[in-house]
């Protein structure tokens, strides 16, 4: 090295003009990336800008954001939505982990049954699935019928249009989004690590803590983040099952447009909802690389 120290020093190199593949066509990236990016500007940027304009365009002249943030109905629904999303996320991730594990360890025909249930849920529309829950939860619906048949229930079921009615349905709607990433994480666990754990005398609980849980935690988090942000925007299911006393933010927003005739308030609330949701998504994405797990 001693003879060459003179050469090690010179950082006064000209700025590297083109250090990747020579002649690499910049047109290539342009042709591929620009159409979707332009689409995002039109389909995402323009509506968001229109939201801002609409929120500021207020006949009465006061600030729609301030008005929205002082509306008790909105604040209540906001709190309710966040709590609901948190509960749904926790239940979904928990159940999703068990479900994904069950898929992985089931014998053939049970595995088929579990996967078929998952696909059925993915392939049928949310409307249809929500109808199913309505029919189950109606005062004299299917659950009551079964309870009655078994002699467990003699009063009609009082769960319909309550907060309790929404949870099973929402968990069922969201479950596939948690199961799929966790199942693929489980499939990707290094089998040698599992074998090593077994050889060194580790029981199921220790193996789970030492090998399985660390391997699936990223998938649980990215699935959970996605479920959470999607749950924040829940509209149909709470509306049909939770009834008017359990309005989510989405329900309130649509009410501002469809019945209250205050599109400016609706727009202001929309911006708050979008802003909050996207902020949570971005932070989670920075922290946990959620989108990398999905893309």
């Amino acid at each position: 090295m001693s003879t060459t120290t003179g050469e090690l020093a010179p950082p006064e190199r000209a700025a590297p003009a083109d250090r990747h593949e020579p002649g690499r066509n910049r047109a290539e990236a342009r042709w591929l990336l620009w159409p979707p990016l332009a689409f995002f500007v039109v389909a995402l940027g323009v509506p968001l800008a229109a939201l801002v304009i609409r929120a500021l365009d207020n006949e009465t002249g006061d600030n729609s954001f301030a008005a929205a943030l002082t509306m008790p109905v909105f604040l209540d629904s906001l709190a309710r939505t966040v709590v609901m999303a948190l509960v749904v996320t926790a239940l979904t991730v928990l159940l999703g982990t068990v479900y994904a594990t069950a898929v992985a360890v089931s014998p053939g025909w049970l595995k088929f049954l579990l996967v078929a249930a998952l696909l059925l849920s993915l392939w049928t529309s949310i409307m249809v699935r929500t109808f199913g829950w309505m029919l189950l939860e109606l005062p004299r619906g299917a659950i009551f019928w079964l309870g009655d048949l078994l002699g467990l229930m003699d009063e009609p079921l009082g769960v319909y249009q309550t907060a309790l009615a929404m949870y099973p349905a929402m968990v069922a709607v969201m479950l596939p989004f948690a199961v799929l990433p966790i199942a693929s994480a489980l499939a990707a666990i290094d089998r040698e690590q599992l074998n090593a754990a077994a050889v060194f005398g580790s029981g199921p609980l220790l193996t789970f803590r030492a090998v399985i849980r660390p391997a699936i935690t990223p998938a649980m988090i990215s699935g959970g983040v996605l479920v959470f942000v999607m749950a924040l925007g829940f509209y149909v299911t709470p509306l049909l099952l939770g009834g008017p006393t359990n309005m989510t933010v989405s329900g309130i927003i649509s009410g501002q447009l469809r019945t209250a005739g205050r599109p400016d308030l609706g727009a202001a609330m929309s911006i708050l909802l979008v802003g909050g949701t996207i902020a949570i998504y971005l932070v989670a994405d920075r922290l946990f690389k959620v989108s990398e797990k999905w893309g």
Binding site: P36, L44, P47, L48, A50, L51, R54, L226, V229, M230, L232, G233, Y235, V249, S250, I253, S254, L257, P263, G266, A267, M269, S270, I271, L273, V274, T277, I278, I280, Y281, D285, V290, S291, W294, G295
Partner: peptide, 15 residues
């Protein structure tokens, strides 16, 4: 590219 999944549909619809 993944962000639209997180977009609350009703707010986007209002936009």
């Amino acid at each position: 590219f993944i962000a639209p999944i997180a977009l609350p549909p009703i707010a986007y619809a209002v936009g």
